[in-house]
């Protein structure tokens, strides 16, 4: 990246994104990713060249609407099935370490 074309991303931003994504990246990883993502973003930013206001967005490749389910109870997991993959449990609940933040 030349001085006239600065990286679209700096290390502080990558660290912020890693925090949003809940990944405890090491400083080395942050540095490496900052460089790699800079290159990638430069190459993919060209989407905005053709994305003019008159073009509608497509989020589903095949256009469907109103796909619903009848309000009828179905099979549930047993408690043992539900907890079968739990790294840690306490009785019939999943156990996690203390929570720092608050409910959103």
């Amino acid at each position: 990246m030349s001085a006239t074309n600065p990286s679209p991303l700096d290390a502080a931003q990558v660290a912020h994104l890693a925090n949003l994504a809940r990944i405890a990246l090491t400083p080395e990883e942050i540095e490496k990713l900052t460089g790699e993502l800079g290159v990638i973003i430069e190459s993919i930013a060209k989407v905005s060249e053709v994305a003019t206001p008159d073009v509608p967005a497509t989020s589903h490749p095949i256009r469907l609407a109103n796909v619903f389910r009848a309000d009828v109870p179905g099979e549930t997991l047993t408690v043992e099935q539900a907890l079968s993959g739990a790294p840690e449990r306490d009785g019939d609940r999943f156990k996690v370490s203390a929570i720092l933040g608050e409910e959103q």
Partner: peptide, 12 residues
């Protein structure tokens, strides 16, 4: 309460 708790349990 959440503050000062040792751990938390989750029921979905």
């Amino acid at each position: 309460r959440i503050q000062g708790a040792d751990y938390s349990l989750v029921d979905y």
